[in-house]
Design a protein around this nucleic acid. Structure first.
Length: 431
DNA sequence: TTTGCCGGGTG
DNA sequence: CACCCGGCAAA
């Protein structure tokens, strides 16, 4: 099977992303950002900084740098507390003035000799961050907190929230323990480039993922904007175009600061207005894309969606595996005509038992009986062409009914229904 | 890991 | 078509 049309799983993806991200990081690291404009400088989590606290200078580590407010959230190990400071009130060298030091901070990716001493602090920070501890959230209310949590929640999957943590992790070829940990929780790095790459790559495999019921959107944090987009690329582009201006590479990376992730319940997002979530259109692409956070979903009907209906019809024909089945059946989905509930009714409950089906050809005790009882599963099949709804999943939901395999056992394979033998949807024990 | 079955290949 | 099976996702 050389020419497999199916995509490999995510593995290559991850590899790719990670690989490139590492590059991107080192590459885009901030060495040599000579700019002195404060508003342009960035502080990175874990970066050591100094602030005035209680009249004296205190050392601390950056937790968050909110570019919108130009505020920096800092953890002061000495005082064991978190503080917020304006960017201009923060500096990176003990005695120097904020201004000069800040700019110097820019090119301190974190391979500083200094950082060695910081290991403890870092470790502590990392742990706190990882656990998304209330402390931090408290210290960084508003936009920052979500960001932090985002890192936890979405980090693994989305790459995005991971910004803060990954940033340093990747800069170094041999990450220190804490960093390694962080990488685990947020394996993907973000960085503009990776993002996009990430995006593109994710577009393909996502259809398979169905786990999350949460969808992520991205909200522009730019004052008075608040625009919400569903893809990282989109939001970045928006920020870049609308707020940052095309400009240089800096701004490319800075879009990160101007948006935040918004988690939504899938069901909420899918239906625009009145339409039913999963039932919306005969075969909205939503089929199995729920989790895909970043996909520009909907945009392209894509072959996927198109295949949906056909797959269902296909099902019908497939039922002809067992010639006896008078009516196609299957489609766990109800016809559109019953928009009331999108949830497919448990087959066993309602439907009239279908008598009349000249059902068997072979006499197989157990299975047969079972069958007789549960044969119900067949649907009136309204003439309506309307395709099945609800999980317009191409792959039918696994039924709870026992299947031939279960009933007869693998050793009596010959007693299985043909479909089962052919690894098709079981014909005998329909769901 | 096992199970159900889709998608696609082969004769 | 009938038949088979790789491979994926859910259990």
């Amino acid at each position: 099977m050389v020419p497999k049309t199916r995509l490999g799983k995510r593995s290559p993806l991850g590899t790719l992303v990670c690989g490139s991200s590492a590059d991107g990081l080192t590459e885009t690291g901030h060495h040599g950002c000579p700019e002195s404009g404060l508003h342009r400088s960035k502080l990175y989590p874990g970066q050591k900084v100094y602030v005035h606290c209680g009249g004296q200078e205190c050392g601390g580590v950056v937790e968050q740098h909110n570019h919108v407010d130009n505020e920096v959230s800092i953890f002061l190990p000495q005082l064991n507390q978190h503080v917020h400071r304006k960017l201009e009130d923060v500096w990176t060298n003990p005695t120097s003035s904020p201004n000069s030091s800040v700019s110097s901070s820019i090119d301190v990716p974190r391979r500083n000799p200094e950082t060695v001493d910081m290991d403890e602090i870092m470790a502590a920070m990392v742990l706190t961050s990882l656990s998304c501890s209330p402390v931090i959230q408290h210290a960084a209310p508003g936009t920052v907190a979500p960001a932090l949590c985002g890192m936890e929640n979405g980090g693994g999957e989305l790459s995005d929230g991971g910004y803060w943590s990954c940033d340093h992790g990747n800069g170094s070829p041999a990450p220190s323990p804490p960093i390694a940990e962080m990488d685990k929780s947020a394996p993907l790095v973000d960085e503009g480039l990776e993002m996009e790459l990430d995006q593109m790559l994710f577009n393909e495999p996502t259809p398979r993922k169905r786990k999350n019921s949460v969808k992520v959107a991205y909200r522009c944090l730019w004052p008075k904007c608040g625009k919400i987009l569903t893809s990282v690329v989109g939001i970045k582009r928006h920020i870049r175009n609308s707020h940052l201006g095309q400009s240089d590479e800096h701004s490319q990376r800075e879009e990160d600061f101007y948006y935040t992730e918004v988690y939504q319940d899938l069901e909420q997002t899918a239906p625009p207005a009145g339409s039913r979530p999963s039932c919306a259109s005969p075969c909205s692409p939503s089929r199995h894309r729920p989790p895909s956070p970043s996909t520009p979903e909907m945009l392209h009907p894509s072959p996927l969606s198109q295949s949906a209906p056909s797959s269902h019809w296909q099902v019908h024909t497939e039922h002809s595996y067992q010639a006896h089945q008078p009516v196609p059946v299957v489609t766990p989905c109800k016809p559109v005509s019953a928009p009331v509930s999108c949830h497919w009714t448990p087959p066993l409950t309602v439907h009239q038992s279908k008598q009349a089906s000249p059902f068997r050809r072979r006499s197989v005790s157990v299975g047969e009986q079972w069958l007789q009882n549960n044969n119900a599963t067949f649907r009136p099949h309204p003439a309506s062409v309307s395709p099945p709804r609800n999980h317009c999943t191409s792959r039918r939901i696994r039924g709870e009914a026992k299947k031939c395999r279960k009933v007869y056992g693998i050793e009596h394979r010959d007693q299985w229904c043909t479909a089962c033998r052919w690894k098709k949807a079981c014909q005998r024990f329909l769901d």
